[in-house]
Design a protein around this nucleic acid. Structure first.
Ligand SMILES: [Mg+2]
Length: 225
DNA sequence: AAAAGTATCAACCGCTCGTGA
DNA sequence: ATCACGAGCGGTTGATACTTT
């Protein structure tokens, strides 16, 4: 019993920061769980890591976001959805947490107000229970960069099966279209919802549907807009 | 002056992912 | 195959700062 609050929570003090910084100066970053053991700092390794990445690291830029940064974030979010780490990777000096905070507090409402007007770009990804995947040339790495490209050709089920549209949490610009009764390929739909960023093409020939999609990852050059 | 309402954002939480024994 | 571990992700909260009544 007692002593169960091994770790302190809440805001970090200057003194705690110094202990963490001293440790990192000597031992470097990583193996964060050792820090409370070695230094006696009453913070979980997880908390130490977060404190370093978001506040103590010299790479972190302080101060208000510039207009350029805001514009960049808006365009990246339009493309990538709530993938804050990916977005932050393209905004120098800003962390995923900063970008996420900025979006939630400053941009979300502002943009929704404007969004009332225009119709959103909508694309579809198709998968069904009774489909057969004909050419699932599985994720193929392109040389040199980090783009993953997928091409799928899928056979639709019986002619009378209906398609339903589901929204996609990961990417507001992309809905998912699936057969009403589909569940067999749920993992595939999930994978797409998670990874698929942009549908390059989607076409159907009779009961066949094909699509190309790309998954954006850190480091790949993006053309925004 | 003070309370009530709102905005901000650092940090927490639960979870997933990759790796290696 | 299973487990442990470190790292990382994104939704969400709660303490504080700021604004309005
Ligand atoms: Mg960054």
């Amino acid at each position: 019993m007692e002593g169960e609050y091994k770790y302190k929570k809440g805001l970090w003090t200057k003194e705690e920061d110094e202990i963490l910084l001293d440790y990192i100066r000597v031992h470097g970053r990583g193996r964060w769980n050792r820090i409370p053991k070695v230094t006696g700092l009453r913070r979980s390794g997880k908390s130490c890591r977060l404190r370093w990445l978001n506040h103590l690291s010299p790479n972190v830029k302080r101060g208000d976001f510039s207009e350029e940064e805001e514009d960049l974030i808006i365009r990246l979010h339009n493309l990538l959805g709530n993938r804050w780490s990916l977005i932050a990777g393209r905004v120098p000096g800003r962390t995923d947490n900063q970008v996420k905070n900025y979006w939630n507090t400053h941009l979300y409402k502002k943009l929704n107000a404007i969004k009332k007007k225009q119709t959103p770009r909508k694309v579809a990804v198709v998968s069904t229970s009774k489909t057969t995947t004909h050419s699932s040339s599985a994720a193929q790495e392109l040389a040199g960069d980090k783009l993953v490209h997928q091409h799928k050709l899928v056979e639709a089920p019986d002619s009378d099966s209906n398609f339903v549209t589901k929204s996609n949490d990961q990417n507001p610009n992309m809905d998912i279209v699936a057969a009403e009764d589909s569940n067999a390929e749920a993992e595939e739909i999930e994978w797409m919802a998670k990874h698929c960023t942009e549908l390059l093409s989607c076409s159907s020939y009779g009961n066949m549907i094909s699509w190309d999609m790309v998954e954006f990852q850190q480091g790949y050059h993006l053309d925004l807009l």
